[in-house]
């Protein structure tokens, strides 16, 4: 049994992307502003990481209006959830492996 760091998902190399995925794994949907408050990062920063995850087809976007305010919600796709789970499993195995060594 030898698991290398290559097995870790490249899309989650960035801390913020991994955090976004964690939130969407624990919640059915999450809106942009709540996500921004929770992670305490800027609009532009969050938007660019969301775009990247969207490109990977790990998340989907739902746009709607609350009154006149636009309300954007994000949801993890099946593919995204599997990728997140695999990433966590790999992390866990890496830790086990290092403990044995």
């Amino acid at each position: 049994m030898n698991i290398s760091f290559d097995k870790l998902d490249k899309a989650f190399e960035n801390r913020v992307r991994l955090q976004i995925m964690s939130v969407l794994a624990a919640n059915e949907r999450y809106d942009f502003n709540s996500l921004k408050d929770l992670l305490s990062i800027t609009d532009g920063n969050l938007a660019s990481h969301l775009k990247a995850l969207e490109k990977e087809e790990y998340i989907t976007v739902h746009k709607s209006f609350l009154g006149r305010k636009p309300n954007t919600n994000y949801e993890a796709t099946g593919k995204g959830k599997i990728a997140f789970k695999n990433h966590l499993d790999t992390l866990e195995q890496l830790i086990k492996q290092q403990k044995l060594a």
Binding site: L91, I95, Q98
Partner: peptide
Amino acid sequence: MEETELQNELASIRSIMERSSK
């Protein structure tokens, strides 16, 4: 990555999942 770094990573994921849903 070091072992502690990996564990920090997991801990931060757990914490953010909890803070986002509870």
